[in-house]
Design a protein around this nucleic acid. Structure first.
Length: 489
RNA sequence: CGGGGCAUAGCGCAGUCCGGUUAGCGCACUUGGUUUGGGACCAAGGGGUCGUAGGUUCGAAUCCUACUGCCCCGACCA
């Protein structure tokens, strides 16, 4: 069970780093701000990637790949976008090294090899992609273009944290082009829903769907849709965004098409992305003091079978037949036949790594035609008959997936607090954390003042916001609905 | 870029204040044995330019100077 926010939040950062390390997900690299994703962490990313990719294809998208480098002149074309990312760009200025004449065995950047035009390492790919789309689009018949790219991007962050914020990260970015405003808006909305569905059904991480305020919006977008999750320490995590880009990029890159009446029009655009940050969200939604807890739908291995006390041939044989039955149901299974470690060590290890279900099988069990089943989410252990074990495990995995979501949702809902004055706002923020639902006068100035005073930002204006007249929690000016504030990652 | 801290075995640390045998501990590793239903035990063993460079001294992990790297706290942020 997740502990109370108050007790964990003091050392939450350390606790998080411990899980990342001990579960074998990732480690810091020698390169500043970058992370090495280890095989187990990457396997989780692959599960996420495969599922998302499937959902993108089901909604009509195809994959392609665009260059890592963006010439500066292209990068700066869409001014707001360029300005928004300028502070965190890695820039390539030279293309060659040479031996240092002053220092044998060392290399220096060859000043002769200075690039005529600097190359920006993509922090996002709108620029390079819209430069390309210009050549691909002439007629309404060329539209829509529905392309996704799986890639790495670089944002030179000052302070980093594994999965949540690293200088280089893996993501997917969808970039679509449409003939009408309505169609582009529908696309942005659709992908917003795809993200919410993925977060809730697969990560078992409840999210609030909403739109960003002008302040928090993606640089270059007319509207940004977001899914906001709540972590165990009471801080919010922006888990995915979908942007309606209007005609901003079409105008910046001069991308026009002829409509059916043979009139020239600018193309309408969207972009949307999720990143390896989702793994951070997963960790901070479900894990406990014994380590990682993985939702079965994203666990690289769903069931591990541990022969007790060690892998005797008879036990291995039985384990194989259980594994065979489970695999027939599409369940992933691993049999631990390592003789060098004792059962207790293995139990702790698999708990740390978050395996959803562990089956223990010993001679004693075999005689009774049963095994011991341990579920990671509740830490319950019980013996069950070998007859019909495949059905039992199948429904157990479903139950674990559901239990994790319900538990996280209850926690999240318990930490949405309606607040009506600013003292209460600060009090809840300090002592309880979580989402604060309150009235806001709709101005960027007020949002900024609240941020400066409390570090809380407007996470989103919920899509299901109720019409309700009230007074801004800060200025007392009239407001027509509540927005969600929180401290965020 | 501001403020603070750290640097000793693969990892985590003690020793530094107050200089003095062969630099130590836990984990991990190797070998052998006994074990094995919740992180086994015993024994033997391997592994170190004490971050780098210079200085003080009969003698430096320890004192002094410079440099380098890393971590934490701020500003920035998926």
């Amino acid at each position: 069970m997740a502990k109370e926010i108050t007790s964990r939040s003091e050392n939450y950062s350390q606790w998080y780093n411990d899980i990342v390390k001990k579960a074998g997900l990732a480690e810091n690299s020698a390169v500043r701000g970058c992370m090495i994703i280890k095989p187990y962490g990457y396997a989780i990313w692959e599960k996420m990637r495969d599922q998302l990719d499937k959902m993108f294809k089901e909604t009509g998208h195809v994959n392609a790949y665009f260059p890592l480098f963006v010439p500066k002149s292209l990068f700066e074309a869409e001014e707001k976008n360029a300005e928004g990312f300028a502070k965190e760009c890695a820039v390539v200025t030279h293309y060659r090294l040479k031996n240092d004449p002053e220092n044998k065995g060392k290399l220096i950047v060859d000043p002769e090899a200075k690039l005529e035009e600097e190359l920006v390492v993509r922090p996002t790919s709108e620029a390079i992609i819209w430069h390309t789309y210009k050549d691909w689009i002439q007629s309404y018949r060329d539209l829509p273009i529905l392309i996704n790219q799986w890639a790495n991007v670089v944002r030179w962050e000052m302070r980093t944290r594994p999965f949540i914020r690293t200088a280089e990260f893996l993501w997917q970015e969808g970039h679509t082009a449409h003939a009408s405003r309505e169609e582009a808006l529908a696309e942005a909305t659709k992908m917003h829903s795809v993200y919410a569905e993925f977060a809730e059904e697969f990560i078992a991480m409840p999210v609030i769907k909403g739109r960003k305020t002008e302040n928090e919006r993606f640089a270059g977008a007319d509207d940004t849709f977001t899914i906001e999750a709540l972590m165990q320490d009471g801080k919010a995590l922006q888990a995915g965004t979908s942007h309606f880009l209007g005609q901003n990029f079409a105008k910046a890159f001069d991308v026009k098409f002829s409509n059916q009446a043979n009139q020239s029009e600018y193309v309408w655009a969207t972009s949307w992305g999720v990143t390896t940050r989702l793994i951070g969200g997963l960790i901070m939604t479900h894990s406990d003091d014994d380590g990682l807890v993985l939702p079965p739908k994203l666990a690289p291995v769903q069931v591990v079978i541990v022969p007790i006390p060690k892998p005797e041939p008879e036990l291995i044989e039985k384990a194989n037949s259980i594994a065979y039955a489970l695999k027939a149901k599409g369940i992933s299974v691993q049999i631990d036949n390592d003789e060098s470690k004792r059962p207790g060590f293995k139990f702790a290890e698999y708990e740390m790594k978050g395996y959803p279900v562990r089956i223990g099988i010993g001679m004693r069990d075999l005689q009774n035609n049963q095994v011991e089943v341990a579920r990671r989410d509740t830490k319950e252990k019980y013996s069950i008959s070998l007859d019909g074990i495949d059905q039992h495990i199948e429904s157990l995995l479903e139950d674990i997936q559901k239990t994790l979501f319900e538990r996280a949702k209850k926690f999240r809902n318990d930490h949405i607090t309606e607040v009506n004055d600013f003292e209460e706002f600060k009090n809840v923020l300090e002592n309880k954390g979580g989402f604060i639902s309150c009235h806001w006068d709709g101005t960027s100035e007020t949002e900024e003042l609240i941020k400066q005073e409390t570090k809380a930002t407007i996470r989103c204006i919920p899509l299901d916001q109720k019409q309700e007249s009230g007074k801004c929690v800060y200025t007392g000016k009239p407001s027509m609905g509540r927005v969600i504030f929180a401290k965020a990652y």
